[in-house]
Design a protein around this nucleic acid. Structure first.
Length: 321
DNA sequence: GCTCATACTCCCTCAGATGA
DNA sequence: TCATCTGAGGGAGTATGAGC
């Protein structure tokens, strides 16, 4: 086979679902992007940055080696929860804890030496469906055509991350972020109380991230940090509101990552954040600051999702950041 | 030997600057 | 105007070294 280009095509983020007969809509899988190079009896997996991750997922490689062609596939490595939903965190723990791993394949880039990237998406997907062997570890990522809003609402109802919208006639553009692939994300929102802020780094001014908590019982429970969603003016004005609230007293009893780098404030300001999901430690994943809520009392702010069953907040050491 | 902190890896999102 | 790049942030892991 010719030297294949393994750089995956990237999607542009949008938050508005749409209907269009020229587009197809797939499940947005929540895992690691992986490109597979397969041939009869052997297969390798590569991350988005072209690192060889075959040794981390030998069972997936073994399943892929059953493909009776030389092929380069594009897909997402996921771990499924008890409800069959893909969960990023399960995947990260998969090396230590048993999880149901799955390689969800949604595109075929090369087949038996032929470069298919110039062919329309629908044609590539049809060829992919033909060659993908039946395996509990491999899944052909099916799609619906046209009905994007319905697909998005269904994904939201099932607690999934969203849907991928793809131009049916689109070519595969390796390594490019295009508007022919769109990820339509269904994010969650939560009111939180600001209990501190971290120091800025590099060119950032005023503060790095906001330390966030919710009311539980008579105390405050740490739920994560939001370091994005601000522009320069928001950083300045928010910092001006935080400075008069600075206190030596840490509002949270539990251990907080990077506490030495945190300035604590009295829990007065209520913020609205959006995020992708709750982690097993009861913290928000990918929190993004949306704005301050002046109509809410800090003591009224509670977690809007039930705390996960896994209460164990194991924190081996502090994290980067 | 154990615990904890640090520094690195992997992945991700988002905002702002820059250049075509 | 749009695409791309950079740098801010996040969650998770592993490896290493210091201190008890």
């Amino acid at each position: 086979m010719m030297q294949p280009d393994l750089r995956p095509m990237l999607a542009t983020l949008t938050d508005k679902p749409f209907d269009d007969p020229g587009w197809l809509f797939e499940t947005k899988w929540d895992g690691f992007r992986a490109v597979a190079v397969a041939a009869p009896g052997r297969a390798s997996l590569y991350s988005r940055n072209l690192n060889d991750i075959s040794k981390k997922y030998p069972s997936i490689c073994e399943a892929l080696s059953a493909i009776e062609h030389e092929a380069v596939l594009d897909g997402e490595l996921v771990a499924l929860d008890a409800h069959g939903r893909s969960r990023f965190q399960l995947l990260q723990n998969a090396e230590r804890e048993p999880a149901r791993l799955l390689y969800c394949v949604f595109d075929l880039l090369y087949l038996d030496g032929k470069d298919l990237r110039g062919r329309p998406l629908l044609e590539r997907k049809a060829a992919l469906e033909q060659i993908l062997p039946k395996s509990p570890l491999l899944l052909y990522s099916a799609h619906v055509t046209g009905a994007g809003i319905k697909a998005f609402n269904r994904a939201k109802r099932l607690g999934e991350e969203g849907v991928m919208a793809k131009l049916a006639t689109g070519r595969y553009r390796a390594g490019e972020r295009t508007r022919e692939w769109l990820k339509v994300k269904a994010s969650q929102e939560q009111e939180v109380v600001i209990v501190g802020f971290t120091a800025p780094r590099r060119s950032r001014k005023y503060f790095g991230a906001l330390v966030l908590a919710v009311r539980e019982g008579k105390g405050w429970t740490y739920v994560g940090r939001a370091g994005t969603g601000f522009n320069a003016e928001m950083l300045r004005s928010l910092h001006a509101k935080l400075v008069p609230l600075i206190t030596e007293v840490k509002p949270i009893a539990e251990k907080v990552p990077d506490a030495a780098n945190t300035t604590w404030v009295k829990p007065k300001l209520v913020a609205e954040v959006k995020f992708t999901e709750w982690t097993s430690a009861g913290e928000m994943r990918h929190p993004v600051f949306l704005g301050l809520r002046t109509d809410k009392k800090a003591t009224d702010v509670v977690r809007e999702m039930p705390k996960p069953l896994s209460e164990a907040k194991s924190r081996p050491g502090s994290r980067r950041g």
